[in-house]
Structures are given as C-alpha cells and as structure tokens.
Design a protein around this nucleic acid. Structure first.
Lengths: 207, 207
DNA sequence: TCATGATTTGACCGGTCAGTCAACTACTAT
DNA sequence: ATAGTAGTTGACTGACCGGTCAAATCATGA
C-alpha cells in the first residue's frame, strides 16, 4: 500500500482532474486521460476499477487542494468575520489562477462533476456529500464564534446556515463557470457572502 | 415553416428534455432519444443538424415552460415583495412536481446542461446567457418597484441584484439536484431569497 | 539465483457513438 | 395526373467507447 515507484496513479488523478474540470466527465474519455498522462490503458485499470472510480478520486484530490486554503483562512487566530472575508478572497483568487492556467473560468470541480453525475452514480453523490460536509464544518465553527461575539443571534441554526453558505458558493462558482467570467465573482462574492451570513449589524469597511 | 403533420420535432424536444434532465447530456445518446421518442435516426437529423442543436432547443423549451410561471408570479397586480415570495413558492412547487414525475430531484435543466457543456459549446453558453437575461429582467422590474416602495435604497444596482438572485436560485437548485433532496429547498429557498434581496427592514410573516 | 508480486504494455473485444444516405411515402399545389 | 416538397425509414459508416487480458518487465528480498 506504499507509494509506487513512479507517480502513475497520481499522474492519472491530476490529469483527469484537469481534463474533466476544463470540460466534463462525459466529454473526456479514458483514452484521452491515458494519452495526456502518458499512461497505457492497461495501467489505468491496474489502478482504478472503472472510469467513475477515477472521477471520485479526483474529487478527493480537489478537496485536498482546497483544504490547504481552508486551514489557512479558518485559523482561529483571527476574528470569525475576517475568516469568511479571507475565504471569499481566497476562493476568488483560486478562480483567477485556475482561469489563467486553463484558459477559462472553471468553477468548482466537485460541483460541476456532481451536478453531471450525481443522478446516476451514487459513489459520486456520496463523495460530494462527504466533501461538502467537511467544508461546512469549517463554516459551523466560525459561525459559532460569530454567535459568541454577538454578531449572530443566539438561536442561529448553525448547521443550516453553513449549508446555505455552501450553496451560495456553489451558485456563484457555477454561474462564473457557465458565463466564463470572473467579473461578477469579483464584484459580488464577498458582499454576497456577508449578506448570506445575515449579521445583526453590518460592520462596514475595516480591512 | 408551418407545423408539421405529426409532432415529431416537438416529441424529440420533449423526450430529450426529460432524458437529459434526469441524467446528463453526455449520458444520453441520440439513439436513446430516438428510441424513447419513437423516431428514427434519419428523422432526427431531418429536424436537427446535430445533437447539441437539439440540446439548445430543449433549453428554449425549458424556458418557455418556466415563462408561464414567471408571468403569473410577476403580475404587477401584486406588491413587488409578494412577487418574489410567490416565485419562491412556485419554484419549490415545480421541483416537487418534477421530482414526483421523474423519481428524483432534477434542479434547473438549463443550469445543469450549461454547467456541463458551456465550456465546450458556445451555442449552449449563448443560449444560457439569453435565457438567464430574460429571467433577470423580471427580477429587475420587481426590484425597481421595491425601490419605489422604499424597501430598497434608491442607489440599488438593480441589474447586479438581479444577477445575484439568479445565481442564488441556481445554487439552491444545483444543490438540491446533487443531494437529491427537497428538504433544504423547502426550508431555505424563500427566506434565503428574501435575505438575498437585502431589504432595508424585514417584514415578518404576512401569510 | 530465483521466486514473488507489483507494474507495464499493447493488442484486442463487442458494443455504441454521432452522423450519413439513398430510397421511399405522403401530401399539396397546379 | 404529375411534379415538387416535406417527412420517414433503416441500413450503413468508421471512429471511438469502457474495459479485458496474457505476456512482458521490473523491483525486492530470501
């Protein structure tokens, strides 16, 4: 179970992630992935039992990459509101970098793939559920701190609010992907997130 | 250019809309559509130059169906805030009916398909742009009435707010589709929409 | 040295893909 | 009647699909 000599498996994951993110699961074939990763078909099926299994692995990979950002943004060392602001900035920045790398706005890889496949592949739906849950837990912690700071009412349903925030990001990123534009993300992501938080009183402008 | 004897073309559109909505563009083949619509392959290509052209036609069809709902909800006969509330109810109700019809929560057909294909097919992206724009115009009218009623500040960027509302629906519906659940839609769609509106003062509870 | 298991290779499979085509049918206008 | 047109049919194409497989290669440790 240790790491294999070459990074064949990882190379397949990275390549598939990029190709699927840029287009879609259905539009990318196993042959496409193999060719781009310089891996022969037989090797592919040595590491993954099927195409969808690789897809699920790319979702986990995407989450792992995002986790680095989340861990930094949600450091308890800073105030809870500032954490969300940091997150909005980081998400936007990540989209800018991805757009530069792939030549188009790609949105959230997990969301796009799940929207395409969740209705047919339970493994994808379950993976999405797992990943979204993990991200929502970051929100919940910060939301509880907002309650403690008196910025949110004491009876706030933290779990529901966290889901709402996740759905908010999903909507913004999906929209940006379809429109292939970073503009509304730049304009609206942060203020919209703050509005979604539904703070008792708006603290304008510190930053 | 008149209507053809039988509704072959329309049958293809309706069938494709249902099949793609339930799964995805990539997972549905032209043969699948033809078989389900009881239309021979040759006839398919008599009416549509390609598979994506049919897909774009289903987007227009989806919009036409939604337009009926919109026209009713956004009747100027009722207050602007009540229009949005009516819309939230109607969107939820439509999802309930679709879920019952197809056995799963399907979300927004245009959004799912566009998220899947917009990165590769400009015709899809353009159609989405056209349709989303048409829907946003309903929001803009109601938003201006909200401003006139003093429920929104006079300097509200109505265009941007309309886009935000559209993105909000898109996020909620995509989430519901992936999770295959109407629950959060039922709980959150209306209050979240009202929060997205960002009214100066909340008018709790009438009806 | 040899045995063992992990990895790689490329030929191969049957089925399906989007799309084509020439022939055929049915309606319509003259 | 007949010519033109719109619609229909199903056989066909060649490329591509996801997936299989047996044989070859490699690394490792006894």
């Amino acid at each position: 179970m240790g790491q294999n000599t070459n990074g064949t498996r990882q190379r397949l994951i990275d390549t598939a992630q990029a190709l699927i993110w840029k287009s879609s699961y259905g539009a990318v074939s196993v042959d496409d992935i193999c060719k781009a990763a310089d891996v022969k078909k037989g090797s592919f099926y040595h590491y993954f039992p099927s195409k969808v299994d690789l897809a699920v692995a790319t979702m986990e990979e995407s989450h792992a990459q995002l986790k680095v950002i989340y861990d930094e943004c949600f450091s308890p060392g800073i105030g809870p509101l500032a954490r969300f602001e940091k997150l909005a900035d980081a998400v936007y920045q990540a989209q800018v970098e991805t757009a530069a790398k792939y030549g188009m706005v790609c949105g959230c890889p997990c969301a796009s793939m799940s929207s395409e496949m969740a209705c047919q592949e339970d493994s994808v739906r379950n993976k999405f559920e797992e990943i979204s849950r993990r991200q929502e837990r970051y929100y919940e912690t910060a939301l509880r701190d907002l309650v403690a700071d008196g910025l949110l009412p004491g009876d706030t349903d933290v779990r529901a609010k966290a889901e709402e925030i996740y759905a908010y990001f999903l909507g913004q990123l999906t929209m940006a992907r379809i429109q292939n534009s970073l503009e509304s993300l730049k304009q609206n992501l942060k203020p919209g997130l703050l509005r979604t938080l539904g703070l008792k009183q708006t603290l304008a402008g510190a930053a």
